[in-house]
Amino acid sequence: MTKHTIVALVEDRPGVLNRIASKWRQRGFNIESLAVGHSEMAGLSRMTFTVDGTTTDVDQVTKQMYKLIEVVKVTDLTEHDMVHRELALVKVAANPQQRSAIIEIVDIFRAKIVDVAPESLIIEVTGTEDKIDAIFEMLRPYGIKELVRTGRIAMTRGAAAPTSVDGGKGEHHRYRPAGEGKPKVGSLL
C-alpha cells in the first residue's frame, strides 16, 4: 500500500494550517490531497490528507506533525477498514442534443445534476477517487469547462473511533466551544 490516508485532529486556531503546511514543505513531504473542516469536537478541526508512501517516510510525517503544539492526534487509517470518499463538481458543456446521453452517464454513476443552463450542466458526484476519475473520463468528450475535487475524506468502519480524542468532559477545556470567543472555528488560516 503506497497511498496513506491520515487523519489529524488539530486545534482550531489561526496559523495552524500555515504551520502544518510549513512543516510539510520544510521536510519535503509529498502530500497529495488535503481536506479540512470541523470535527465532532468543538474547537478541533479534522484534516484528512493522503501521502505517497513511496516518496515520503510516513512515520516521519506523523512524528513531525506531533511536534506542532496544536496537533492533538494523528492517525494513519491505511491499515484500518475505512470508508473514504471524495466529492467533485463537474461543469460540462451540454447542448440539448447531448443532454440525454450525459444524464445517462450521471445515472450510471449515481451522480446528481445540481445546475442546468442552456449550454452546460453541473454534476455532483461522490465516491472513491477511481469513480470520480471514471465519470470524468466519460464526460470528457462532451467538453469539461470546470472541475473541482475536495480531496479524500475518510472514517473507519464500525463503532470504534480511533481518530477521536476521548471524552470532552473537562479534559479538553482548552478547545473553545464552536463560535465562541476568538479565534473562531474555521480560523485555521
Binding site: 489561526p14 496559523g15 500555515n18 504551520r19 510549513s22 512543516k23 520544510q26 503544539i69 476568538k182
Partner: peptide, 17 residues
C-alpha cells in the same frame, strides 16, 4: 515575524487580546 519564524521556533504566538 510569526510567519517568518514558524520553521525555526518550537511555538510562536501573535497575541491579539
Amino acid at each position: 515575524i510569526t510567519g517568518i519564524t514558524i520553521p525555526i521556533t518550537k511555538q510562536n504566538y501573535l497575541v491579539l487580546d
